[in-house]
Design a protein around this nucleic acid. Sequence first.
DNA 1: ATGGTAGAACATCTA
Length: 254
Amino acid sequence: MKLASWNVNSLTVRLSQVLRWLENERPDLLALQETKLEDARFPAAEFAAAGYHAVYSGQKTYNGVALLARTPPQQVLRELPGLEDPQRRFLAADIDGLRVVNLYVVNGQSVDSDKYAYKLRWLAAVRAFLETELARHLQLVVLGDFNIAPDDRDVHDPEVWRDQILCSAPERAALQGLLDLGLEDSFRALHDESGQYSWWDYRQGGFRRDLGLRIDLILSSRALHARLRAAAIDRIPRTWERPSDHTPVLLELA
DNA sequence: ATGGTAGAACATCTA
């Protein structure tokens, strides 16, 4: 079983790229973030024609998440329990015997911003939700744009990024809090090396100079550990014309 | 210290 996550930074702009990538990779599941469109405008028919069921939770201009799967998602949840939040960042569903949670974690802007406090509050609600979810579902996958680089191996210049947004100690502690529930970063379960990034800033030639961060993650529950086969980051879509600033990350389960 | 680019409500916000 092949799972993937991709922050597309506007599905309207990136639809043809997503369809092309699905055709090439044929994942069983693709989680999208930053679709930036209302549900009434979601291109469900195009994905159906490509052989994918879609569930989605979107809004105009910002945020928006979706799950595309070859089998129909069931038990769909569109609201993060315990948090009043108009921002569409959360989607959970049963897919192929897995409980799947797609997250577009709050960016936070900077550590002295109100948005940073919102990020930490949001992550606390995610932790509380996942704690109850893990009690119900042994086979759980949490994937998406976490907007947190787990450790310095995931940062092109750790000194420049030290204590900055996406790398600060409280953010990393919040991510560790999720892992402590009984989840693991599947990429790190299979790879030790630094320099494997999933996001590069559009500005100042970030991709050309490989000034990236690994902030797109696929977490898997302990019960899935023996099924982990391969984890990868596909940099190719970041080389395409008019790319998203993120590239897809993948996990293969036996 | 600022701004650099991209996408969206096309004016500023968010990232």
